[in-house]
């Protein structure tokens, strides 16, 4: 499996071996640079494959984080995954990015995953003790999250770290989604060779655009 994610400042590409026994990392390339998704993702996946000793044609499927995440970077992963899937004729499975972070956290207790949505907001989702999503993903101001949040023990993700004082939850060390957890989050579908869901990004926000009202006056 090839796992990609560009919904956080991390540019993530990894090659993962998936069996009934679980997901095992073969190689990965991760760079934390919110401005470099477009530049680095394809070189990263090529390097990870080379280190794993595989060619793109060896892949059985591609897994890609579907966000939510700041729009510009988010699309890099999805369009890359879609194009690879088209050429290789392999299925591409979208995985909500916080689902993978929740698996990385492995706390065994209910959990909040909050990532940085910029504009002083977070994308957040809640998980039960088994790592199943129970709420979200949503986008909110950090101060508004506690009132909407089911009871959780910990928080993970970069948003949890940045707004730790506002959220008031102990922060566990799972910040960006790992390739292994991206694959693990889709393991059931991957192993069953299920028909993948549509490769649609979780934007959660509408585009900033204002409809003009009446004729635009150029003079006073």
């Amino acid at each position: 499996m090839l796992a990609l994610d560009t919904a956080t400042p991390a540019v993530t590409a990894g090659v993962v071996d998936l069996t009934e026994d679980g997901a095992r990392l073969l190689a990965q390339r991760v760079t934390v640079n919110a401005k470099a998704h477009g530049e680095l993702l394809t070189p990263h996946l090529a390097e990870a494959l080379a280190e794993a000793g595989h060619a793109l044609s060896d892949l059985d499927a591609v897994v890609c984080g579907s966000g939510p995440g700041p729009f510009t970077g988010l699309r890099v992963g999805l369009v890359t995954a879609a194009a690879l899937g088209q050429v290789l004729n392999r299925p591409v499975y979208p995985v909500p990015t916080p689902d993978a972070i929740a698996l990385d956290a492995r706390t065994g207790a209910p959990l909040l995953v909050a990532t940085d949505a910029r504009r002083k907001e977070v994308y957040w989702a809640a998980y039960d003790a088994a790592g199943r999503r129970t709420d979200g993903p949503h986008v909110d101001r950090p101060a508004d999250v506690p009132a909407k949040l089911p009871a959780v023990a910990h928080a993970a993700g970069e948003g949890a770290r940045i707004y730790a004082d506002v959220l008031g939850l102990p922060v566990v060390d799972a910040v960006y989604p790992s390739p292994t957890s991206l694959v693990a989050a889709a393991a059931e579908e991957l192993l069953a060779k299920a028909r993948p869901a549509a490769l649609t990004p979780l934007y959660l926000r509408r585009p900033d655009a204002v409809e003009p009202t009446g004729r635009k006056r150029v003079t006073r």
Binding site: H37, G38, L41, T42, L45, A46, L56, F71, T72, R75, V76, V79, T80, A81, A82, A83, L84, V87, L88
Partner: peptide
């Protein structure tokens, strides 16, 4: 447009790598 260019260039890289 920055965001628009990025979609095409990212796709082109993936097509180039896969082919």
């Amino acid at each position: 447009l920055a965001g628009a260019l990025l979609v095409g260039v990212s796709a082109a890289k993936a097509y180039a790598a896969a082919l």
